[in-house]
Every structure is written in C-alpha cells, then in structure tokens.
C-alpha cells in the first residue's frame, strides 16, 4: 500500500499541477463569480486542438500555447455574452458553448485526433535533460501552476479584482457602486476559460496527443479537486481557494492513481469521480447540517 502511494506520487504531482490550472479556472467561475460555467469541457479540448494544429503547422509550441490560451479566453467571453447580452440561463449558456466548441474543435484539428509524439513540443527539451523525466516536468508544471495561482491572487487584490469578487457575491450592491457587472462576468469567464485552455494545451503536449474527447468530464473532475482541496486547506480567502484548487487537484489525481492500482477500471473513473462529488455535496444535507449551499447566480 505504502509502496503504491509512493509509486503513484510522481505521476499524481505531474498531472495534479497540469490539471490544477483547470481547477484554478473553475475557482474563478464557480467560486468567485458564482457562475456555474460548463464551457470548461469544451475549452479544455479547444486548448489542445489549437496547440496541436499550430504545432503541426510548424508554429513554435510556446507561441501555440499562447494562442490556445487566447482562444480559451474568447470562448469564455462568448459564454459570458450569451448570459449577459442574450439573457440565456448561465448553465445553458455554458452547455451551448460546450456543444458548439465540439464542432469548432473538430474543424480546428480537421480530424478527431492529432498525434504529437513524433514532433517537438515544449516537453521535448525537458525530456532530453539527463535526469529522471519526472523531475523537470513536475518542476515545470508546478512552477506554471503556482505562477498562475499567485497572479490570480494578486489580481483579486486590485480594484477590478474587488469588483469581480463583489459581482459574484452581491451583484446589486456593486452595480450601485458603478461597476458594470456584465463586463465583470464576461471578463471573469474569459480568464477562467483561458486557464482551462492553457492547461489543455500543455496536457496535450505532455500526453503526446490532442483528442476531441479530452475535455469530457473536466468540469466534474475540477469540482472534485476543489472540494477535496477546500476540505484540506479551507476557503476563507482567495489565496486559500486557489491553493486549495492546486492541492486538491494533486490529491484527486493521487486518489485516482491509487484507485487504478488497486483495480479500479479506467472506464469507471468518471463514475468514481461523480460519486465523489455527489458524496461531498450530499453528505452535509443528509446529516441535516446547516446546508452549505453552493451560492450560484442565474440558476
């Protein structure tokens, strides 16, 4: 058992930080803006699709990652505009965008799957180092994840950051103070999905392929990570919420990895994740504790 825990640690750290950036994005939409954004499944694959196509076209991987991030930002803004301009229910706006992105991603890739194993990606130089593959890769993903976490924390201490937090907390109040809450929602969802697409772009290179289905279940996995993280770290401040997202993501990947080692079928992964989230959200209600309701707007 202990052996299993140790053996699965490196891969859990690698994936935990890589996917932790998705969890950071979901913190912005679900936790800060209180907007249940389901675009994530689509924008994660969008990030992978954009970067894979660009790399095949000969664009440098780093520039490809940048453009993938921009694409994610735009996708998030679209969801925001559907909700704020066309007054489409927040859940539905995300589902619509997710569905639209499925076709968009297929168009971008031209097929449902692009292999990246034979071409140079940002991973290649890391793998060519003369040390255990995990060391530079974990260090890289950890650095990116914590870098983004810190930037996010700082952003939410600025005037605009305050306005965005207040938009999720008390929309009426901050509008009375002169903030266009629609713009805040659009901007926040843009940022959120930019993070998600960035993660998708890096994960595609790390795993060696981009696939049309790579985003399926991402939102639930991200929520599971956040819930686990918040149990471990708490959620009193923005800095804690973002730290919880990263720690929770590593913990989640670790739980899954150990589960797989113990015989969990890979095909049952999403079932297990779903059950995890259901339990986490449902147990307080069953225990008749003070209902800790997920405060969400527009649902």
């Amino acid at each position: 058992m202990l052996d299993g825990l140790l053996r699965t640690l490196p891969i859990s750290l690698e994936q935990g930080f890589a996917y932790g950036i998705v969890a950071l994005g979901i913190v912005i939409s679900f936790r800060i803006l209180a907007f249940p954004d389901l675009t994530v499944d689509g924008s994660f694959a969008l990030g992978g699709a954009v970067v894979a196509r660009l790399i095949m076209e000969g664009v440098s991987p780093v520039y490809g990652i940048f453009l993938a991030t921009v694409a994610g930002f735009l996708a998030g803004c679209c969801t925001g505009l559907l909700n704020t301009r066309l007054k489409i229910n927040s859940l539905l706006a995300g589902i619509l965008m997710m569905t639209v992105l499925y076709s968009v991603n297929l168009r971008i890739m031209g097929r449902s799957n692009i292999q990246l194993l034979t071409v140079d990606t940002f991973i290649t130089p890391l793998e060519n180092l003369d040390i255990n593959r995990f060391v530079p890769i974990i260090a890289f993903f950890a650095a990116v994840a914590f870098g983004i976490k810190i930037l996010t924390d700082l952003f939410f201490k600025t005037q605009i950051g305050f306005a965005m937090r207040a938009t999720g907390d008390n929309e009426q109040m901050i509008r009375t103070l002169g903030v266009n809450t629609d713009s805040m929602t659009v901007l926040g969802l843009g940022m959120s999905n930019a993070f998600v697409a960035l993660s998708g772009a890096m994960v595609a290179q790390d795993q060696g392929f981009a696939d049309i289905g790579m985003g399926i279940g991402m939102i639930v996995a991200g929520l599971a990570s956040i819930i686990i993280g918040e149990t471990l770290i708490g959620k009193q401040t923005v800095a804690r919420k973002t730290l919880a997202a990263l720690a929770g993501s590593v913990a989640y990947k670790w739980i899954i990895a150990v589960g797989l080692r113990l015989g969990l079928a890979p095909t049952d992964l999403k079932l297990a994740t779903g059950v995890m989230v259901i339990l986490a959200l449902g147990i307080p209600a069953l225990k008749k504790e003070k209902e800790e309701k997920l405060h969400l707007r527009g649902v």
């Binding site: 952003f155 201490k157 600025t158 005037q159 605009i160 103070l177």
Partner: peptide, 10 residues
C-alpha cells in the same frame, strides 16, 4: 463609487 477602476491595489 462611479470612478473608473484599474489594476491598482484595491
């Protein structure tokens, strides 16, 4: 209130 907001400290 009613003033432009930027990236200065909140």
């Amino acid at each position: 209130r009613g003033k432009p907001r930027g990236l200065k400290w909140g």
